[in-house]
């Protein structure tokens, strides 16, 4: 079962992803859009019903937070966490990368390497991401849409993330970040492409199947967790 956890909010993309062999997608809206148009998340739910009735595809709603500084990030996480299934944070800035990996409410840190020479992740952030189970995104659009003469830089950034992933065991997730049908790639092509930055087929399968399922599972338990280590158990489950 393959999942793409970063697709822009369009039901046509969800149907195309189903055609390519995905079992579930996350339709992502930007936090800035949501602050302007409050009913966008509701319309994602409508998409969800429309597409699910047609196909049986697993659809979740996600919010991608773009923050100016760590304080702004915390405020936005507080605002959107309960409204959405998957919470993504736009990285690139080192302070944002650090704040996102330290927060267990964040599901995915998107492109921490954006506009950087190195991967934006070091041993400290890697350890934090592993502790808080924050997934680091390998964004295929960033690789494919970059200029060909810059592709070597992106491949080396991905390779650095894979190296840290093997050492610190933080979750890595591969997404398409698709805006249009031309950005979607079939899962088995992604497995072949990932060999270019040193990922084995088992690691890719884990990044596209197991890690998304873990995020969904954690999301379903999130409402029951009162504080870290304490969980609210319903009466029926005790019986």
């Amino acid at each position: 079962m393959f999942f793409d956890f970063h697709i822009h909010r369009d039901h046509k993309l969800a149907l195309e992803a189903l055609k390519l062999g995905y079992h579930g997608v996350v339709l992502v809206s930007h936090s800035e859009e949501l602050e302007k148009h409050h009913n966008l998340l509701k319309s994602t739910v409508d998409y969800k019903q429309h597409v699910k009735n047609a196909s049986g595809l697993f659809i979740l709603k996600g919010v991608e937070i773009k923050a100016k500084n760590p304080e702004d990030l915390k405020r936005k996480i507080q605002k959107f966490r309960k409204k959405t299934d998957v919470l993504l944070v736009q990285g690139g800035n080192l302070k944002i990368n650090r704040a996102a990996t330290e927060d267990p409410r964040v599901d995915i840190l998107c492109y921490p390497y954006r506009s950087r020479a190195e991967s934006g992740i070091n041993h400290v952030l890697a350890a934090e991401a592993a502790k808080n189970r924050v997934s680091i995104e390998i964004n295929l659009k960033y690789l494919l849409m970059n200029r060909p003469n810059q592709r070597h830089r992106v491949l080396s950034q991905f390779r650095q993330i894979v190296k840290l992933h093997r050492k610190f065991k933080f979750p890595v997730i591969i997404t398409s970040d698709a805006n249009s049908i031309y950005d979607l790639r079939s899962p088995r092509d992604v497995v072949a492409l990932a060999a270019c930055f040193g990922m084995t087929s088992e690691e890719v399968t884990r990044a596209m199947c197991t890690v998304p399922q873990e995020i969904m599972e954690r999301g379903s338990l999130r409402d029951q967790i009162i504080v870290s280590g304490a969980c609210l158990v319903k009466n029926e489950s005790i019986k």
């Binding site: 979607l184 079939s186 992604v190 072949a192 492409l193």
Partner: peptide, 19 residues
């Protein structure tokens, strides 16, 4: 197979290939 998904543009227009 890894080459196929890297095809993105042709003469300024979008293209996409799948295996």
């Amino acid at each position: 197979r890894a080459v196929i998904p890297t095809i993105t543009w042709f003469r300024g227009k979008r293209v996409s290939f799948h295996t």
